[in-house]
Design a protein around this nucleic acid. Sequence first.
RNA 1: GGGCAGUUAGCUCAGCGGUAGAGCGUCUCGUUUACACCGAGAGGGUCGGGGGUUCGAUCCCCUCACUGCCCACCA
Length: 906
Amino acid sequence: MLEKTFDPQSVEPRLYAAWEASGAFKPAEDPNAEPFVIVIPPPNVTGSLHIGHALNNTLQDVLTRFHRMRGKAALWLPGTDHAGIATQMVVERQLAAAGNIGRRDMGREAFVDKVWEWKAESGGAITNQLRRLGASCDWSRERFTLDEGLSAAVRKVFVQLYKQNLLYRDKRLVNWDPQFQTAISDLEVEQKEVDGAYWHFAYPLADGVTYQHPIAFDEDGKATEFETRDYIVVATTRPETMLGDTGVAVHPDDERYKGLVGKFVTLPIVGRRIPIVADDYADPTKGSGAVKITPAHDFNDFGVGKRAGLEAINILTVEAKLNDSVPAEYVGMDRFVARKAIVARAEEEGWLKEIEKTKHMVPHGDRSGVVIEPFLTDQWYVDAKTLAQPALKAVETGETVFEPKHWEKTYFEWLRNIEPWCVSRQLWWGHRIPAWFGPEGSIFVEESEEAAYAAARAQFGADVQLTQDEDVLDTWFSSALWPFSTLGWPEKTSDLERFYPTSTLVTGFDIIFFWVARMMMMGIHFMGEAPFKQVFINALVRDEKGAKMSKSKGNVMDPLILIDELGCDAVRFTLTAMSGQARDIKLSKQRIEGYRNFGTKLWNASRFAQMNECVRVEGFDPATVEQPINKWIRGETVKTVAEATKALEAPSFDEAAGALYRFVWNVFCDWYLELAKPILNGDDAAAKAETRATAAWALDVILKLLHPVMPFITEELWEKTAEFGPARETMLISAKWPELPADWIDAEAEAEIGWLVETVGEIRSIRAEMNVPPSAKPGLTIVGAGPETKARLARHRDLLLTLARLDAVREADAAPAGSAPVVMGEATGALGVAEFIDVAAEKARLTKDIAGHAGEIEKVNKKLGNPDFLARAKEEVVEENRERLAEAEAAKAKLEAALSRLESVG
RNA sequence: GGGCAGUUAGCUCAGCGGUAGAGCGUCUCGUUUACACCGAGAGGGUCGGGGGUUCGAUCCCCUCACUGCCCACCA
């Protein structure tokens, strides 16, 4: 017997272990089974499961379980990401906390060993948490981005891209993170608004040059007054960079400065003589129109410098302190200290002309949070522009489809404006770059040290000394290979053959650029085919007020705690139901409780079925049922299967969840079980047996349909309900998804039960409005019943009596006095509630109802009176309106008759 | 500055040419032997504003307003 409530805590671990042990997580061996493949977005190995993961992985599991049940060879391939900076940071912090020596003192090899040690101890946390979520991943295929095979794939890709000239080494400005002392890619830079200022500096003109600077203008903006200046004003938000200035730029068409182009200024403090150059970059409308040029520390200035042939002087160290290219007093000074010092000096020496307070966007490292410096270094770059073209085409042609579709625009926008991808990082934890430096600036890029030495020997005709590049690759470089490297590439494995390209990628929009686009580029380049057929972008989970969850705000909802408190199924159902497409998910605990209640409802419905001996019957064929309620629930079940299947195929998770919720609660529990009660408690043995079998059958279908979303409670019920019936052939996880014939929908039964439901609803409504106490059992008198209604009454008298709490149902020629009208198709019911009728209130009620129908009639009449409508609208729409009119008129007439009776009485 | 979303009941959202919906919350009633994590009922909306297309617009088009996000931007 089922216990009174479902106990997730005890059931979940047991069932998960049973599933895994059964081998159900592995794809079917059957070579004819169509594959369905998802590669997991590998969580950081340092990570722990947050609510975003819970959503993302729930959806993947729903899909995997659904397709598995449909008989596909379903593979959900799990794994984790080594997460270069993040992991190195975590381990460094731990070492520091434990009082260990720092990374640099420890040395590279020892440090990397420490990270591996840490990974062995704590790296599995997140995969265990995925198990708590019920994730049916094939753990036998689990991968790690830094494992042996994936590292080989990374080397191969690097070498091949290099040899195809799609990857190269270049000296240019990068985004430099002074905290981690590494280059980072454009995507790892976050623009944040900060308080700042424009400091206007007067740079003295060299060689005694002066010019006339306009200071007053007429209405047309023409200069009317000038002053003689021996300096030129430039503005900057970063005063400290002036120590690296090698020029001043003005716009070639700027009348004010035309005469100054080719002249020089003397850079204050430094005393360097630097030219005034003409360049389109200088915007006459901004600041003074003249701009200082620091080629080594500004992306725009770098371009100007190149065009004008200005020297790029690097004035910073890797820690963003001033280096020895600046006057001695500033060497070693922090960049922000230097900023203050230089402003102070400018003021003191009189060349600070103005301070303009402003807010502006400043680049910060997304991990370190410190201000990023443009920094001139040698780095490795991927020619993303070239690789992007086929990736664009794959989405343009529909080889890969985004869902929701509008994310394609975001994808296009980025790929069409893509910049070279800086892939080298000055870190230790990651894939070491397979490049070796030799004599005379030679570089050998090979998959192994031996191959590099061999290549060097071939080039120099003798053995030479090589040094491997110290740097590692951007974490996203290996992630970009994930859909094929995890399947065994570059080996030609059977998995690769069978499971590439994958079916659906489920991920968040925040990594469309970081990950999705790059997988598309690499997948197409190396496999010749886009890595996914569909990219499903899931929403972002926020707190109930719509704020992003963050530890500092204290609004984080821990999915594991929620699972402990409310059960995994409730959390999963909530996330599934709320994953409507274009939006943020505002999650509240209350919402999860609601779906926990849904699970309890299902549990109790099963208990009810069990108490009433609704046991599965071997060989039961729902096609043969005769009772109207059984025909009806059979049809409703068919419709729900169709709805759920269609929704999960799309996938529209929220629609699937909604359809199942409504069916289980509002159809099966609220009506079917109630309608079944009189039969189950009655004496008609055949009807009773049929109803028991039908209920058990429908419940089985429900368990199957709900299983992808609520795997635990359904599996438990699947097991428990087998206690009395025939044994189950498989666990529910391996059961077959229902496919039911459409002709099991019986229009007649549907109409009949619909009529019953409406009648009961109307009587209940009248009772409540008239405050008829539940204990009172009025009689119902039917007037004007046709043969169909008579037949229905005969069949469902008991149901009417029970569900509407009536004393008797009888037929008569006229409604008795003091009754309330119930519209029942062509017939009129008269509810004998004389003792409860407040005549005035009842009159008001009827008048209001009549007015409602009158409004409807007027509206429809207006439509039907429009010749254009009759001529142009679809026939069925016209017909529908005619029916509506007839129904409204009939109902109105009945209510009017009742009203007039009431008036004659009172 | 460029782009993308969104604006529907108190809240969260679905609907996306043909009678405005759900969940939660609110109010009323209820110990009817599956379930109070429940049942029955009720109230609540000129579908952001303005144009247009159409027989018909919450839905399609244009436009405006507001909100959110992404990208770019340190004179």
